[in-house]
Design a protein around this nucleic acid. Structure first.
Lengths: 148, 148
DNA sequence: CCGAGATGCATGCAATTGCAAGGATAAGGT
DNA sequence: ACCTTATCCTTGCAATTGCATGCATCTCGG
């Protein structure tokens, strides 16, 4: 291999990708078996539900859930079709949509959480001491700076 | 089952998923800018290239790269179409395909690695001390046991 | 005010993925 | 041998994603 980055970096990279994908698949599978929609739905709903007003511009949600713009757009189509969110023209900016969570949306998010939390506990929490989980979060946090 | 909102497990979970997705997107983007195909291609090619014989049953590759069976099947279709692998009927098992890497496949893998290694270093290695990367890998390794 | 460029959103089309089903072979019990 | 069940691979169809583009609006310099 021509280049020689720290072996430990490559090892960490492989572990990171593989572990995340495995765990995410397991958690998603648990959620699906419980009859719930994909976790992306939860991600969007929880962002809106947290807001005191229950609404956010689509672009803000997009930046928080790490989805491509066209992808969030179509995800919102689906959420809207299911009556979980509404789209309102923004009074501040004629280009922007406000995404508004509906009562059904809040209800679904609330119902998903116990299963989600249980799956996280099963697939992650039960394998780590709290201090280890905190250390993991700290190390992961060091990786997300700027564009680097 | 109700859950404490600030549980360190949940925090670690969110960091894990978000960080992996961010970093993977950045690395894939670098690779694409360098004119290379998706990383899955690399994953399959490297498994075969590592084998002394340059071949493995499709099912073995599948279990290593964490893809659904129908997904790996179609990925192999693409690799075969590009002349990077061949499919041979297995002499041991009439149901099984042997995936064989071609000279072009080995060449592509070899050419991808420097860019891949550089991207890993940029997006992960440069943010962590070697000891931190090792610790990260260790913690992640604790998460993948059995079915739990 | 005007125009150039940026931003926020939507959509047509092609590629990829998920799902369900099916065909062929293998393994194990009777 | 026969039947049942499991494994390995493939494929049709629907849903989702990626990409390029288009449209309306906003921002900013003149």
């Amino acid at each position: 291999m021509p280049m020689k980055p720290n072996d430990s970096s490559v090892d960490a990279w492989v572990c990171l990708v593989r572990t995340e994908q495995r765990l995410l698949a397991r958690v998603e599978e648990d959620m699906k078996r419980a009859g719930f929609p994909p976790l992306e739905w939860y991600d969007v709903l929880v962002e809106l539900d947290r807001e005191p007003t229950g609404m956010l511009p689509q672009a803000v949600v997009q930046s928080r859930v790490l989805l491509a713009q066209y992808n969030l757009c179509r995800l919102c189509d689906r959420l809207q079709r299911e009556g979980l969110v509404l789209r309102q023209p923004s009074p501040d900016d004629g280009r922007s949509n406000l995404l508004v969570i509906t009562e059904n949306g809040r209800k679904l998010r609330r119902e998903m959480w116990p299963s989600y939390a249980a799956a996280i506990e099963t697939h992650l929490g039960s394998h780590l001491q709290p201090a280890e989980a905190a250390e993991l979060a700290r190390l992961l946090g060091k990786l997300v700076g700027g564009t680097g």
